[in-house]
Nucleic acid binder design. Structure first.
Length: 393
DNA sequence: GATGGCCTAATTAGGACTTCCGGTGT
DNA sequence: CACACCGGAAGTCCTAATTAGGCCAT
């Protein structure tokens, strides 16, 4: 795949939206399921690019850890964009050391789901993408959403593993665990119950619920294939819960066959469900929680409407992962740049990056560009460039 | 030679899974 | 019967935090 075709990554290279590009993308999409073929484009390759945004072309400064752990601002908590009721652990767990070491700072737990971008996460090939992040990425990728994973109630953070095996294999590819299956992945998901990252939606198989969501999540709903994500504010349609109860559990075995191409997968009848099929963010009025799950350990707290560091219009040019990184920056907005230079550097770099690109491409209005039947994600299809100035950060 | 600063490799602790298992429910 | 789902237990892997040691300048 062309290096610029990262699904969720920032597409910065000049990309003529011609047919070559389209074909490449389609081929890439077709290769999604051909995971057993080491020579062909694999999903892992795809997502290596997807989740490790190819910002290296432009951003050479490593994205240093956003978590500000010094003097009070410890860990990703109190982050406005994320709402987590994650409870801290007893202080007794904070240290158990031999010798006479100084008590080490408690290592920040998995961002729950507060994003903590680990140092050089994207630059050293680290595979430190958490499972929940992985799922969120999938949910923002039109190549797999809604085919393999989809929102059933985006407003409540409820999603369904339409093809649990495929998702598990994707995860296994990502983690370099060829034997990964849904059983194993499901165990990891179940651990998320305890940590308050996920809830299980009772009575519905393969349906889970994020207890919190990022501010500017890209929501791809069914039938979203041909629609660009744009004019979000005008498109906040009310399809919340429309998919609730959908049980098209298509555990197709094609994903397991190395010989079968994506053609079969693609030949699956497109699900025509109720949702209008658009990328959208739920309106504030929709952000009510469904009936609480009795066994849920904590309530889902859904995100507020505004105060977003990057608004959805920026999304096409900022990968979801980077987006969350930037969202995290908001937390340290009030901090002095001198004390957190890397954070501000990154922010400013991104800002200048966007500005430069916007200047270079002028007023690119990609919303008129026809999309290719949902094979490409919004980032690819809409390199809509909205200058992200440092003031935004 | 003593001291301090910087850098790097090694060590350690702990988080995030992964694997296995036995069991229940649909 | 297959599959989803559950949770305990033990293990692996990875990474951040910390330490130790070497080098250099003063």
């Amino acid at each position: 795949m062309a290096c610029c075709s990262s699904v969720l990554g920032v597409k910065m290279e000049p990309c003529e939206s011609g047919e070559e590009e389209t074909m490449e993308t389609l081929v890439a999409a077709d290769s999604l399921l051909n995971m057993d073929c080491p020579d062909s484009l694999s999903l892992e390759q795809h997502y290596s690019q997807t989740f490790l945004p190819s910002l290296g072309d432009v951003i050479t400064t490593p994205v240093t850890q956003v978590t500000v752990s010094a003097e009070g601002v410890v860990g990703p908590f109190d982050q406005p964009q994320w709402h987590s009721l994650h409870t801290g652990k007893p202080a007794s767990q904070l240290h158990s050391r031999k010798r006479s070491r100084k008590p080490r700072h408690r290592r920040a737990e998995s961002p729950t789901p507060d994003i903590k971008v680990k140092k050089d996460k994207y630059n050293k090939g680290g595979n430190t993408l958490y499972l929940w992040q992985f799922l969120m990425e999938l949910l923002q990728d039109r190549q797999v959403c809604p085919r393999y994973i989809k929102w059933t109630n985006p407003n409540a953070g409820i999603f369904k593993l339409v093809n649990s095996k495929a998702v598990a294999r994707l995860w296994g590819k990502h983690k370099n665990k060829p034997d990964m299956n849904y059983e194993t992945m499901g165990r990891a998901l179940r651990y998320y119950y305890q940590r308050g990252i996920l809830n299980k939606v009772e009575g519905q198989r393969l349906v889970y619920q994020f207890t919190s969501l990022p501010e500017d999540m890209i929501y791809i709903t069914e039938g979203d294939g041909t629609k660009e994500e744009e004019e979000e504010n005008d498109e906040i349609d009310d399809n919340s819960g429309n998919d609730e109860g959908v049980s098209d559990d298509s555990d197709d075995s094609t994903i397991l066959s190395s010989d079968q191409s994506v053609e079969e997968e693609d030949s699956l009848p497109p699900k025509k469900k109720t949702s209008a099929g658009s990328v959208h963010t739920p309106s504030a009025a929709q952000r009510s929680r469904p009936a609480p799950r009795p066994s849920a350990q904590r309530d889902t707290v859904l995100r507020p409407t505004k105060n977003s560091l990057i608004q959805e219009k920026h999304l096409p040019i900022v990968s979801a992962e980077m987006l969350r990184t930037l969202q995290n920056l908001q937390k340290v907005q009030s901090l002095q740049p001198g004390g957190h230079s890397s954070v501000f550097k990154t922010a400013q770099l991104l800002g200048s990056l966007c500005e430069r690109q916007a200047a270079a491409e002028g007023t690119v209005d990609s919303r008129d560009r026809p999309s290719k039947s949902g094979q490409k994600t919004s980032e690819l299809e809409t390199p809509k460039l909205v200058p992200l100035t440092s003031s935004d950060l």
